[in-house]
């Protein structure tokens, strides 16, 4: 089956690739584009390790038909850091020990970013809700919620 050419904006960069028909966005990002930050954990939408933002909204890239992102804006954890500097969320994850094995981190960070983009000072419940589609087997979630609280504080301070 012929591959299809598509173009989209990945982490601010124009990107054009040929994708497999029926291929999912996760595979194409990883194997074709080479952005390895989203991870395969289940291929069925239950784990959240493949979470990316499509036009600013979190979606599960393993369940997105790759050709559907033609012309869309995609953000992944691969583009979250500001050059050599960590994003405040990434920094808070480091300092708060919110990553252990690291496999859920990229998806978790994108879910958190989508939340903070909408809501600069979320409650702990709102944070728990925002990451409820992202599983973590190491931390027990509390350090992750703590880190997001801290990141939100730091980001508010930065903008004011």
């Amino acid at each position: 089956m012929a591959k299809k050419p598509i173009s989209f904006v990945l982490n601010g960069q124009d990107t054009s690739v040929f994708v497999e028909q029926g291929g999912n966005l996760l595979d194409e990002l990883r194997r074709t584009v080479g952005d390895l930050s989203p991870k395969f954990g289940c291929g069925q939408g239950t784990c959240g390790a493949c979470t990316v933002l499509i036009n600013g909204e979190p979606q599960l890239s393993c369940l997105v038909l790759a050709e559907r992102v033609e012309g869309q804006r995609i953000d992944t954890n691969g583009g979250l850091a500001e050059g050599p500097d960590l994003h405040p969320l990434q920094k808070a994850f480091v300092e708060g020990f919110a990553a252990q094995c690291g496999f859920c981190s990229s998806g978790m960070l994108m879910a958190a970013k989508a939340l903070l983009d909408r809501n600069a000072s979320p409650s702990r419940d709102e944070i728990a809700e925002a990451i409820s589609g992202n599983l973590c087997r190491c931390t027990g979630y509390e350090p992750i919620i703590d880190a997001i609280v801290v990141a939100a504080e730091n980001m508010r301070r930065r903008t004011t």
């Binding site: 390895l36 991870k39 691969g78 920094k91 994850f93 300092e95 990553a99 252990q100 981190s105």
Partner: peptide, 16 residues
């Protein structure tokens, strides 16, 4: 102490 591999984890650059 801060674990040595955590920077790669949060940047998504750790190679599994």
């Amino acid at each position: 102490t801060i674990r040595q591999d955590i920077i790669g984890h949060v940047r998504g650059t750790t190679r599994f």
